[in-house]
Design a protein around this nucleic acid. Structure first.
Length: 378
DNA sequence: AAGCCGGGGCT
DNA sequence: AGCCCAGGCTT
């Protein structure tokens, strides 16, 4: 078996054993024991709860997850229960959290846990890494936090803390900084017999003290070891990453009624709001006239009347939603086979996952007759 | 290496 | 109006 490649040396002060222990590890552990927040996934700990929390927390702030975690766990108390509930149920419970691929990956990981690991979340980072939606960070987080394995982790918090403690002047997404953060995190977990707690402590510090803007150094337990503060640049690093250009997309949605039901379709699994449900629709780079929307859908639902328009800014999309209402259908529905469709009552539709603005439009317009309200129009 | 994928709170 | 967030996958 070939020797493992030598891990790059951590930057100072993480490379200095005496500073690492007395100036960083011990103060951090003590601070976290005393000042760490009481969060749902910490109050009652289990590997499954840790795994769910880590999926939810990917690119999502603690406050958003905190308010929904217990209800989610009550709905899916075990991997087996999540598999039995099905992917649509997970998508529906995920509604509003964004990055919906995570919900499908979590369901897929639950299935892998049941099928390949006897229903128990594995403790080995390599096994975790093989699960869908589990990358280097999440594998290390579950292994260390749930099983106290000495696995390093690097998320936005860890990278920021390392940049400041090490006085590393980089852009937030600079690979040189990320590499340095992995080396530093490796040094940290190897310097303690409580790697899970230490990993949580570093992230907690980044979330509550070593915050992106105006860090609260007066409350920092390791400020005496902070090279960035010594240089007076702690508030300037890491430098913000260049922001992406936002491209415009127009989504034209048509409400077609049949008694108490409306016609919904599932969006493709890739792309914006992948796998979520919406009224049947047409997408384009520019706004389409109602006549064109009707033609592209097959001209079977009669005249389309505009109901509402809303604009939504995503990270790299500017989404314009145009909602129409079908008049008297002049023929039977002509539905392409490329998308899954179905007729749904309000109750049944509530069991599907919908994007937040789509749900808002549905609740406002799909099942009510109060359509002369100027709300959202214009 | 770069692009893609949401939504909300804070400044 | 920007900013950021307990990232991972695809190309």
């Amino acid at each position: 078996m070939p020797p493992a490649p030598p891990s790059p040396a951590p930057p100072p002060p993480f490379s200095d054993p005496s500073v690492l222990h007395g100036g960083i590890v011990e103060p951090l552990l003590e601070w976290f024991e005393d000042q760490g927040r009481d969060l749902p996934w910490r109050r009652v700990r289990s590997p499954w709860r840790t795994m769910v929390s880590e999926f939810m927390l990917q690119q999502t702030q603690v406050a958003r997850v905190e308010e929904r975690f217990e209800a989610f766990l009550e709905r899916f108390p075990t991997p087996s229960a999540m598999v039995d509930a099905g992917e649509d149920a997970v998508l529906a419970a995920w509604e509003g959290l964004g990055y919906y691929r995570r919900a499908r990956f979590l369901h897929g990981s639950a299935k892998a846990v049941v099928d390949e690991h006897g229903g128990e979340v594995p403790s080995d980072p390599a096994m975790l890494l093989a699960l869908p939606g589990v990358g280097r960070y999440t594998a290390g987080a579950i292994a260390s936090i749930a099983f106290d394995r000495p696995a390093p982790i690097v998320d936005g918090n860890v990278a920021r803390v390392v940049a400041r403690i090490g006085g590393l002047d980089h852009q937030a997404d600079d690979p040189a900084l990320i590499d340095a953060a992995w080396a530093a995190s490796t040094a940290l977990v190897e310097a303690t017999d409580r790697p899970g707690t230490l990993n949580e402590a570093v992230m907690e510090l980044g979330a509550t003290v070593c915050t992106p803007a105006s860090p609260r150094c007066d409350r920092c337990p390791i400020r005496s070891s902070c090279l960035g503060r010594g240089q007076g640049i702690e508030g300037e690093i890491p430098r913000p990453k260049s922001r992406p250009v936002r491209t415009v997309v127009h989504i034209h949605l048509v409400i077609v009624r049949r008694g108490e039901e409306i016609l919904l379709e599932r969006r493709p699994s890739g792309g914006v709001w992948g796998g979520l449900w919406q009224p049947i629709g047409v997408e384009s780079e520019t706004e389409l006239e109602s006549r064109v929307v009707g033609e592209r859908l097959g001209s079977w639902m009669g005249t389309l009347d505009p109901l509402a328009r809303v604009r939504r800014l995503l990270t790299h999309r500017e989404v314009h939603l145009h909602l129409f209402e079908a008049g008297a259908p002049v023929g039977d529905p002509e539905l392409g086979s490329e998308r899954e469709t179905g007729w749904f009552t309000r109750d049944r539709a509530s069991e599907l996952g919908c994007a937040k603005p789509v749900r808002t439009l549905l609740d406002r317009f799909a099942w009510t007759e109060a359509r002369d309200d100027p709300f959202l129009l214009g």
